[in-house]
Design a protein around this nucleic acid. Sequence first.
DNA 1: AAAGGCTGCAACCGCATGCCG
DNA 2: GCGGCATGCGGTTGCAGCCTT
Length: 311
Amino acid sequence: MVRLPCCDKEGVKKGPWTPEEDLVLVSYIQEHGPGNWRAVPTRTGLMRCSKSCRLRWTNYLRPGIKRGNFTDQEEKLIVHLQALLGNRWAAIASYLPERTDNDIKNFWNTHLKRKVQSGGDAAAKPPAHRPPSSSKGQWERRLQTDINLARRALREALTPLDDVKPQQPNAVGAGTGCGDSPASSSSGASQFSPSAAAGLYVLTTENISRMLDGWAGRKGRRGGSSGPGTPGGAESASGSSEASEVSYGGAAIVSAAPSMAGPLFEHETKPAVAAQQTQLSAIESWLFDDDSNYHHIQSSSLLDAAMDYPF
DNA sequence: AAAGGCTGCAACCGCATGCCG
DNA sequence: GCGGCATGCGGTTGCAGCCTT
């Protein structure tokens, strides 16, 4: 099945996205929802290939994304999941709903890899049987058989921390961001929850204002929001939910809250998000439950969740 | 203050996979 | 069952800001 690359056409723009392009893309998705990426460039007039549009959305514009400043907990989780799953960033990202696979990958390559290699975390060393780059089915089966190993490792990763419960996945609107995780794209749209929408709205406007804000100070650093000490994500999002007014390029832009919220939520693949939260909770309780009872209830529910999980 | 190296991140590229006619 | 299309995923690259000398 040889096919031509989608981006080899003449006149396809590459490189950093401008805020104008971002707005066009966001507006389009707001109206039509994510998906059918092939049609996006033609319908929006963006001189970008479909892939680029999808990537921009999933890695940057999508609601609910937290950027920068990985917490210790996230860090440990990533290290252990990487040890268990290998470089399956999408699978790892599904456990960190606010993080994109690209972010995690970058974080691993720039921070954790070095850390682990320098012997910082012996526990993080990949097990001998770590799934090689084999077929998905293979490692999925392996994951099933190694579920107990995974449990131990994850517990080890999470328990030493002060706050016993993982904090971020259940934060306001948190866990809503992973609409693009493997799970989401294929699941139906039947469980949309208004409360999730409320959180999502916050994150949406936050993202957009951040995007514009980021550009305003962009010349500072690409994706300015991710600058040191300024995680654009959940914390700030939960703090201010009013429509944000930002200006760039001389024009003031008001993120019209309700109009922005509605369509986006309609089309976002939120059911998966809700499902993810549920699954994450199952995992959490699985991790922190007494050994005495996990055998009976938790392990089975987690196993169900894990098996349902679309790695 | 300037220059060169380093770091972090957004984006690109190519292959894999799933879906549909 | 086959072929083509659309999307997902992971590796890699390029570049801008930061840091060190």
